[in-house]
Design a protein around this nucleic acid. Structure first.
Lengths: 272, 272
DNA sequence: CTCCTTTGTGAGCACCGCTCTCTATCTAGA
DNA sequence: TCTAGATAGAGAGCGGTGCTCACAAAGGAG
């Protein structure tokens, strides 16, 4: 909590403010957090077209004052995207039974990728649960998180904001949940729950091998591919449900249909 | 082409204009089409935040004049969404080898659902191709279409426009491609390419049975479920690629990875 | 105690969706 | 053929937006 503040300051303050007083940095971080909280509330009600002026109005301050904390509306959105990724990642990791050594947003800026990989690779197996159970729990947790706050899901997995190129800060948190699924799969593989008999071919297989070597060492390329495929299927299923694609087809038992799909994805991985 | 104009008029004109002169209706339809063309161009460059004023400027007319053709920005977007659905549907149907009796957007308003179902169910088997081949061709066509115009894909499969509730006119075209996939699967089932040994259970199975009875009669619920699942996986895979989710993982051979995933989806259906 | 960084204000610019009034034009029917 | 009415466009205007800038208060650092 306290260590986070310094980071916030260094991210949004000027370069010379590193030696600023502690109290200044703290009130600044609190203000930053307050702005994000109000913005999150607006996002939940009004949708993706977030109005900086409306947020400032709710905070009882001039709209121009917000620009002291976020250089632009895009930067505010970026901060909220990072928070959303971390919130989803934490929820999914809790369901998977990961110890989550790096917890929430405390990973140092820039090293997020490596830290995420280390966390995902380092966690052990949850007590008494099969790989399939952990996989289903993880995907259900992601769906529950999305259903609880659809706009936050849309923020990170919907169409990107026009002209919005994902900044470097987001790539770390963004990979958190897919790395988690890969870790769950790799744990199951390590426990002998999956046999990897039919290898994959093609150029993408080499890319998958490189990705696997980097983030989930010891996992064969086919497992990396099926894990990514499962993650993509999961995000597609959640988006389809949230964005109204299931209307007039599956209206009652959407949870059941989601699980049906995720069991299929698990089957492709080799989890059963 | 000509029969379409009357429909455009009846959709956007006042109710009393049904008896209007043919030339009036034609120039109105041409103007409507021109607005949509310019809007589509703006969409391709600027992204989803379409500016009515900018479109009007490009057309050399006052912004208020556009409101003679589209009651609001949302209505323009709706028209473009319908066009996008139909464009994608036509591309996918062509790849699947469907005869596409209803062609483009000529289905009468309101009866779009029934017409779509009839079209999808009525088409025969493409000469000499297996169900798997047709399925892969269809999904690749959808991906190719999306890659050629990412913003149009984002328009229909990205996060819905805030406050935008999909109007009745869109549900018909929206179901076109999923019905197509269901038809491809049902054709393969009819040809004995799929065995349906393990039935599904749960409340969603009944919903799927009802959907199947309505749109693809003769197909068992499990096939309807796996076909929908495959469609969802497809849209998820395309969205993931388009929205930058694959960055730093699969960068070279994205087509190969897509096919890998679609082969997995086909495997779950029972196509092989 | 003085400097200077930081924080907040309010005016202002250009743009947006949308509404309104007004005018020119063109069609339909007597 | 002439007229009444529907239609298409123009332009001003309203409230909203993101963002910039000059300026004033306030606080910590030397």
């Amino acid at each position: 909590m306290l260590g986070e503040k310094q980071e916030q300051c260094s991210r949004y303050g000027t370069l010379a403010s590193m030696s600023a007083s502690g109290v200044r940095a703290r009130v600044r971080a609190e203000m930053t957090e307050e702005i994000k909280t109000v913005a999150r509330r607006h996002l939940a009600t009004d949708g993706a077209n977030l109005s900086l002026r409306a947020v400032a109005r709710d905070l009882g301050m001039a709209s121009s004052a917000v620009y002291r904390y976020f250089a632009s509306r895009d930067e505010l959105l970026t901060a909220m995207i990072i928070d959303a990724y971390n919130s989803l990642g934490a929820a999914a990791e809790a369901a998977a039974g990961q110890t989550a050594a790096g917890q929430d947003a405390a990973s140092p800026a820039g090293a997020g990728h490596a830290a995420g990989a280390g966390r995902a690779a380092g966690a052990g197996r949850a007590a008494g649960r099969t790989g399939l159970e952990r996989f289903l729990a993880t995907t259900h947790a992601a769906r529950d998180w999305a259903l609880a706050d659809p706009h936050q899901w849309a923020l990170i997995y919907g169409s990107p904001v026009p002209g919005y190129e994902a900044p470097e800060d987001t790539v770390g948190p963004a990979t958190r949940v897919v790395l988690l699924i890969a870790a769950v799969v790799r744990d199951a593989y390590g426990n002998g729950e999956i046999d990897d008999r039919e290898p994959i071919t093609g150029r993408y297989a080499e890319e998958l091998a490189a990705v696997g070597e980097k983030f989930t060492p010891g996992a064969p390329p086919r497992l990396v591919g099926t894990a990514m495929s499962a993650f993509i299927h999961m995000s597609g299923a959640i988006s389809a449900e949230l964005f109204g694609q299931l209307r007039n087809s599956v209206d009652d038992d959407r949870r059941g249909f989601f699980e049906f799909q995720m069991r299929g994805a698990a089957h492709l991985i080799g989890l059963r």
